[in-house]
Structure formats: C-alpha cells, structure tokens
Write a protein that binds this DNA or RNA. Sequence first.
DNA 1: TTATCTGCAAACGCTTTGCATCGGA
DNA 2: TCCGATGCAAAGCGTTTGCAGATAA
Lengths: 151, 151
Amino acid sequence: MEQSTRTAELFRSRGLRCTPQRFAVLDFLLRNPAHPTAEEIFLEINRADPRASRATIYNNLRTLIEAGLVREFAQEKRSARFGAQVEKHHHFICERCGRIEDIDWFEVKGIPRAKDLGPHTVREYELVLRGVCQACSTPRRKKTSKTQRST
Amino acid sequence: MEQSTRTAELFRSRGLRCTPQRFAVLDFLLRNPAHPTAEEIFLEINRADPRASRATIYNNLRTLIEAGLVREFAQEKRSARFGAQVEKHHHFICERCGRIEDIDWFEVKGIPRAKDLGPHTVREYELVLRGVCQACSTPRRKKTSKTQRST
DNA sequence: TTATCTGCAAACGCTTTGCATCGGA
DNA sequence: TCCGATGCAAAGCGTTTGCAGATAA
C-alpha cells in the first residue's frame, strides 16, 4: 500500500487508468518471476475476483506490453517456424520480417555454472540475436522481407 | 536425383514412407534456410501440387520432427508467457514444466561481429538455457511442476 | 496386399474483437 | 460527467484430429 501507490502512479504517468484488474495483472507478474501464462494469470486474478474475465487479462497484458511494463516471451511471431538443420546452432531473428537465420555453432564463454543457476540442470543453450536483416534494412524497391502468412 | 534418393533412404531408415508430400516438405526445408512457417511450406508445396493439403504438411512436420530430421523453433510451449522484468536478461527454460526463469544479465564474450553475421544488424541478444529445473528434477511428492493450463 | 499416409472438414486451444455497460479520474 | 476499461460471447488463426479413401513398398 505504498508499492501499490507507486504502481498507480506508474500507470498514470503513461496515461493508463489504474483499474483493479490492471493493477492485479502487473502486481501478479511482479511477484511471480516464473513467467506465467495468460491463463495462469487469469486463474489467479479470477480467484480473487471472480468477475475478472479472460478478455480483460489479455487486453491488459497487451496494454502493459505496449507501455513497456511487461515483456512477452517465447512467441517470436504468431506461428511456429521450422528448419532442417538439426545440429546445434544459434539464431538470428529479424524483428521486421520474422525471418530466423541459423548461425554456426560456437561455444559461449561464461555460461553460468550450476552454482549460479541455483539447482537447475542445463542440458543445452543457444544464443538468440535480434535485429534487422539485410533485406529489411535495405530500403530498396519491393523488399523480400514479408515472410508472414499471406492467405 | 541423387540427393532425392538419399532422402528417400533417410526416410526408409527411420521406417517412414517416402511420399511426394513428405519429400517435398523436407526438401523445401533443406533448400530454404529462413525457417519458413507451416503456412509458407504449405503454400510452396501446394503451388507445385495443388492437391497437397495443410493437414498433411502439419502431420509431416510433426513426423519429421519426431524423426529428428526437422527442428521447430520459437514455440517453447503452446501459450505465450509474460514477465514484468523489462530489463535485459537471459532465460532458463525448463523442458519438463515449461517454466521460464530470468537470469541476471551479463555480457557474453564472443558475440559474432557484423562481418561474421553477414549484413545483419544486431540490436540485442540473449542466452537461452534449456534443461530441468529444481522442482522437476526433485522426485518428491506431488511436484510443483505442472505450470500448464488447467481449465 | 496392407499398413501407412493423404485430404477433407470439423474440432481445438489460445488470443483478439465488437458491443453494451460500468466506473475511475 | 465521460472516455477509457470491463465482461461477455463470438470470431480468428494456427494447429490437430477422425475418418474414408488412396498409395508406397
């Protein structure tokens, strides 16, 4: 109730109303570092206030992401992408067209050891680079960029 | 026509029939390093053979993934996950329960320079570690693992 | 010949949207 | 007061599945 005032002001400073549902979403994410799914967030908030709806949770997640207060993870683009290279490799993702390119494997120095990770066991790792690919950064004619669906 | 024979044998060696559609999927992925979506693969294959259906493309992608010939990217689990930590950080993903944990940011030595990446511009990067989290590797009672939807 | 695979259409799961109502500032 | 936010239900999209007919081996 100090923290909550701060959150309320955070919202206002971005032109957002501080509604109970909106507050609950951010509050829950701040307390829960395990990257819950929208459904989990909904279940939690709906438990406290059974009138809270899925639509509102989803809407607020979008709103908070646009406001830079929340981050979405593991959904680079709408649909899954596939590749025939099955050996270890890193990835480059174009933020404009969604294209994913493989980067030849190389070891990364300084991967956290078990002790730094807590008790988790790491089986594999990869580096994900994000940026703009050549096709998208070249302001030529039509561009080859759009790799999205087109039906 | 040499290459294709090799692919056919690859299939057979894993107990898979070599159908035109299945061949086309793997062939397309081998030729196309840009990690196309299922829809893109469908459009391409359907253009050559208008009878090829989406269902078959999807089925074959699953089959090929199970056979270890194809890899799926950027779809850790079914639904998106969210977090309130908006600063740079790395991620640990539990392969059993899908939980995603933030790892405090640290620079990684040896990120490919522009020259090695071709003409792409890297804006940011992150390390993605995959393994088994403590909760899932501890064979205790009920386990806290299941973080999936539960409706 | 026959188990596997295909195409179709319907089902599914997650997410977004249209719209009437509600309520924070 | 009044515009933004909410809840509901329905639509959207990507993906999976049940089933009858087709086909690789």
